[in-house]
């Protein structure tokens, strides 16, 4: 476990020192949300009705931008090969790198969401629920996304391909994330079940993501 902790610490340290990536994702999130009213018109009623959907989809897109970073630099500079020869199973290496991605991308994006909710006239009462569902749902984005990141390491047009591969995998998370928020606003009874399903999806991705990503990484290193 010491090795796992060391790796997490290093990945967080690198994310902070490289800096730009988190800022880019946050900036992109802000920009997409700000662009949508320009396209849809400034009708505040319409915006507040579709705000949860916009905030979730824009968050998916912003997180998608940074997914390729999970393994890319370590694959290119040979670090990943050396990690594969360590005592830590490659599945755990993949899990920790996805966790680092969640800590440095998922959480900041989820915390930025209520601020962007103001731009969309989202009901103040929904802010707590919004952040809660996003914190619960975003691990699935990082962990399922790590599969796509591992699969596209040696592909041409890796970035676009990555989006094509992982977006369909996010459908359940997206649907229950939005269901949870809208049910909290109109039908409180349905909120807890939706949140539980969202949690279950994230927990499932915690298992599936690292196993599949490690399998893909082993194939990439052949």
């Amino acid at each position: 476990m010491r090795a796992a902790w060391t790796l997490l610490k290093r990945d967080l340290q690198l994310a902070v020192r490289e800096g730009g990536a988190i800022g880019t994702a946050l900036g992109f999130y802000l920009l997409v949300v700000a662009m949508l009213p320009l396209g849809l018109g400034p009708d505040l009623n319409l915006l507040s009705r579709i705000a949860p959907g916009i905030l979730w989809i824009a968050l998916l897109l912003a997180a998608l931008l940074s997914l390729s970073r999970i393994f890319e630099t370590d694959f290119e500079d040979g670090s990943l090969e050396l990690m594969a020869l360590g005592e830590l199973p490659l599945e755990l290496v993949a899990a920790i790198k996805a966790l680092a991605h969640w800590l440095t991308t998922g959480i900041p994006l989820a915390l930025l969401a209520p601020l962007l909710g103001i731009l969309l006239n989202l009901d103040i009462g929904a802010y707590g629920v919004l952040v809660l569902t996003m914190l619960v749902g975003t691990p699935a984005i990082s962990f399922l996304g790590s599969i796509g990141a591992a699969l596209t390491l040696r592909a041409r047009r890796g970035g676009l391909l990555l989006a094509l591969l992982v977006l369909p995998l996010y459908v359940p998370t997206l649907i229950y994330g939005i269901t949870a928020i809208s049910s909290a606003l109109v039908a409180p009874d349905a909120f807890v079940p939706s949140l539980l399903i969202l949690t279950a999806l994230s927990l499932g991705s915690l298992v599936l993501g690292p196993i599949a990503a490690a399998a893909a990484l082993r194939i990439q290193m052949q």
Binding site: L151, R154, L161, L165, L169, P172, L208, A212, I219, Q222
Partner: peptide, 26 residues
């Protein structure tokens, strides 16, 4: 798309297989 964007055929085959299994689980 994944298969067509990787030139090394045996590599593409195995990676696509991983994706197919992930897909069938999800």
């Amino acid at each position: 798309a994944l298969r067509s964007s990787i030139e090394d055929e045996p590599l593409a085959a195995k990676l696509t297989a991983v994706l197919a299994l992930v897909g069938v689980i999800i």
